[in-house]
């Protein structure tokens, strides 16, 4: 094993195939030595890119709209477009009652959107590719939705699991399945987002590794371009999907009967 490791290490000298698809996801302290321990307050590259996402949000939605113009500038128009998009989504899916939670959903959407898109810049770090981040987002949604469901509906919220339409003898079985699927929600919710981003970014890196072989490097560059285009699409769609699933879960909490 050990000798093989050495052989492998020697094989990774420049010229050969080098795959480090996960280096881009490493959390490194921004200041100080590379190997420094990362404690909870350390300013890392994750911190930097999250701050950049927050800054972009502020630039677009606060600085961009400072004119308050009735006839909007381009930036204000974009801000209004995003506002209208999310507002309509929340209103369509959850109804009027859900609009109270619109700022939270907007926060989620904008954070994910900007993290995804900033992560597509070369050499960037993508906070939403980390399961820790998406799990916190998804768990936050899960807990908030559950709490809202119980506060708004009391024990009637449990009616979400008890299908009145199903035959009586099937209802317990369906209830068990429903409960399991309810608790799986945050898992799939978070892994879907992180997985999509990890897969895309790792894929680009793998193809970049193939570019070391001169014969297939043009092909690999074309493939990187194509996957990059796909990733631009995925970055937007995943932010949208995360948000609309949040809205759907919220709708379940507000109207558990159907």
């Amino acid at each position: 094993m050990a000798t093989e490791t050495v052989a492998l290490v020697e094989g990774e000298e420049p010229g050969g195939l080098v795959f480090h698809p996960f280096d881009q996801f490493e959390i490194k302290p921004l200041f100080g030595e590379i190997g420094d321990p990362v404690s909870w307050y350390t300013i890392t590259n994750a911190t930097f890119w999250m701050a950049l996402a927050a800054l972009s949000v502020i630039l677009l939605l606060v600085v961009g709209t400072r004119g308050r113009a009735v006839i909007p500038s381009r930036v204000q128009s974009a801000a209004e477009l995003i506002y209208g998009f999310v507002y309509k989504m929340v209103e369509d899916v959850t109804g009027k009652e859900g609009l109270k939670y619109f700022p939270w959903i907007m926060t989620l959407f904008l954070f994910i959107l900007f993290s995804n898109y900033l992560g597509l810049l070369p050499l960037a770090f993508t906070p939403t590719s980390h399961i820790a981040v998406t799990a916190v987002l998804a768990l936050g949604v899960f807990i908030a939705v559950t709490v809202i469901g119980f506060v708004k509906n009391g024990m009637a919220f449990l009616g979400l699991f008890w299908m009145k339409e199903a035959p009586l003898f099937l209802r317990p079985v369906i209830a068990i399945i429903e409960v399991i699927s309810y608790f799986v929600r945050p898992v799939s919710h978070s892994i879907r987002l992180a997985g999509n981003l990890v897969a895309g970014h790792a894929m680009i890196k793998v193809f970049a590794g193939f570019a070391a072989i001169a014969a297939i490097s043009p092909l690999s560059i074309v493939a990187i371009t194509a996957i990059y285009g796909l990733e631009v699409l995925v970055a937007g769609i995943q932010a949208y999907v995360f948000t609309i699933l949040t809205c759907i879960y919220l709708k379940d909490a507000l109207h558990p009967s159907h």
Binding site: W40, T42, T44, P127, A132, L137
Partner: peptide
Amino acid sequence: SFPNQIFWLLVTL
């Protein structure tokens, strides 16, 4: 690295 990410995520949000 989880505590670090979670802390800064909450700050950002």
